[in-house]
Amino acid sequence: MNIDSIRRGIVLDHIEAGRSMEIYQALGLESLPCSVAIIRNVKSQAMGKKDILKIDDDIDIDLDVLGYLDPGITVNIIEDGRIREKKHLALPERLTNVIRCRNPRCITTTESSLDQVFRLVNPAGRVYRCVYCDAER
């Protein structure tokens, strides 16, 4: 299967196989006017199988969202048909408006103007805690 290489844009590589649609939706890629290729179940030496997303434009990607969803993703920034920059993600220390607090007693349930802010408290367990009420996600 051939997918055109891109001249200028972003390639999200090493997406866990089967999760590319979730990433596509979380980043709001459906609203982009440019071409976006979703490539699923690509053979990978390291991962066995992986998904890849190719975006044919240099857009601002929310790396916090991406790092939270799948910290194993590699972000390749392409310019003039070459990789200009390769970014390796990690779980973000702080998440703003990426996930919502589920504690019904949390102030964020009634104060709609507040940002939903979480801080990473346990990287191994991927545990985040609401900065307002300390509830974990």
Partner: peptide, 27 residues
């Protein structure tokens, strides 16, 4: 004092004077 947990944090983000938490829900 506020029945919602984390209300004093929200208050401190916009207050011009010191906030003392006198109890926020069960928190």
């Amino acid at each position: 004092r506020h029945p919602k947990e984390g209300a004093p944090v929200a208050a401190s983000l916009c207050s011009d004077v010191p906030i003392i938490n006198a109890g926020d829900g069960g928190h």
